[in-house]
Design a protein around this nucleic acid. Sequence first.
DNA 1: GTAACCACTTGCAAATCGCAATCAGTCTCG
DNA 2: CGAGACTGATTGCGATTTGCAAGTGGTTAC
Lengths: 162, 162
Amino acid sequence: MERRSGCPINLSLEVFGDRWSLIILRDMIFGGVRHFRELLNGSTEGIASNILASRLKKLVELGLLTRRDDPSHKQKAIYSLTEAAIELVPVMNALGAWGSRWLPVSEELSIRAQVLDEGGDELRERFMAELREEHLGIAAGPPPGGRTVRERLREAYQEKVR
Amino acid sequence: MERRSGCPINLSLEVFGDRWSLIILRDMIFGGVRHFRELLNGSTEGIASNILASRLKKLVELGLLTRRDDPSHKQKAIYSLTEAAIELVPVMNALGAWGSRWLPVSEELSIRAQVLDEGGDELRERFMAELREEHLGIAAGPPPGGRTVRERLREAYQEKVR
DNA sequence: GTAACCACTTGCAAATCGCAATCAGTCTCG
DNA sequence: CGAGACTGATTGCGATTTGCAAGTGGTTAC
C-alpha cells in the first residue's frame, strides 16, 4: 500500500478506511470471536467470505492480528489480537460514543458503547487487560466483582433486550 | 445509504468508512480550512476534485457540514462544521494517538496529535469551544495564555520542523 | 461412509475510485 | 472593455474494489 502522507490520522485511515476492517476487530474485541466461520456468520452486517479472507490477511500483514492453527482441528485457524489491536479499544470507544450520540443507533446495540464510555479509563484499562490475557497470555488477575468486562457488557445488552 | 445494522460502530463506519471523509474533516478542524479550493490544494494527500465534491455533498447531507455562500464572492462557498462534526475531536484524538503509536508517522506531523493527546480533556474541550466560536458563532471567551489551541498546535509543529 | 463443517478461492457484474480535462460564471487588473 | 485567473464543481474513462454466489480440497462427527 502506498503512503499518501505521514500524518497519523491519514495513516490510520489507510488501515481502517474501509467498511469492514473495524467491524472484524469489533467482533473480535467485543464478541470474543476467534474463527473465520464465527466472523462470517456472527455479525449482523453480513460480510462476504472473500472480503473477510482478504481483510484478515491484510490485518495479519499489518500486525493487528496473528494467525495460528487450532490444535483441536487441523483445518481450523485461530486469530488473536496483537497489542496494537487491543489498543484500539479507546478508538472503538470514541467512535461508539460518537455514533450513539449522532446516528440512528438501535438502543440495544448502543448500550454497550454507553456502558464502556461511562466506565471511564478504568473500565477500558480493565477491558484491555482482559483482552491481553485472552489473546496474549498475559495474566490479568481475577475480575473485580467476579464478572469480566465483556460479561458486564453482555449483561447490559441482555437487560436492554428484555 | 442502506443501514447494515444499528450498531454505533457500524453506523459510524458507514459515515467515515472511506479514505477521504475524515481527511476533509481533519483539514477543517485542525487546518481551519473553509473553502473547496483550500481543501483541494491544501492537503498533502491530494484528493481529486470529483471525490471532494461528492464527499462534501455527502457530509452536508449527513449533517456534519453546512454550506453557505460567501458574500465576498458569488461563486464562493463557505463550509462550516456542525456540532456533530466538532464532537469528532475525541475520535480524531484517539485515532491520531493510535496512529502515532503504531504506524510509521512522520515526526513533524504527529507532534500535533501528541500535544492534543497530552493536553487531556481540558485542552480538547477548549479546542471544541474555539471551533464552536469559529463555525457556530458561539462565544468561547479569550484564549487562556493568549493563544488559541490551533495556534498552539501549529507552533508545536513549526518548532519540530526547525 | 457420508454428511456437515473448515478456511478460503474463483468468477463475474456492479459500484466506486482516481486522474485529467472541462464547465460556466465571477473577479481582478490593465 | 477584454484577457486571464479563480470559483465550485461535472464529465469521461480506465482501473480497482466490492458484493454475491458458487465451488475447492480437505477434516471431522456420527
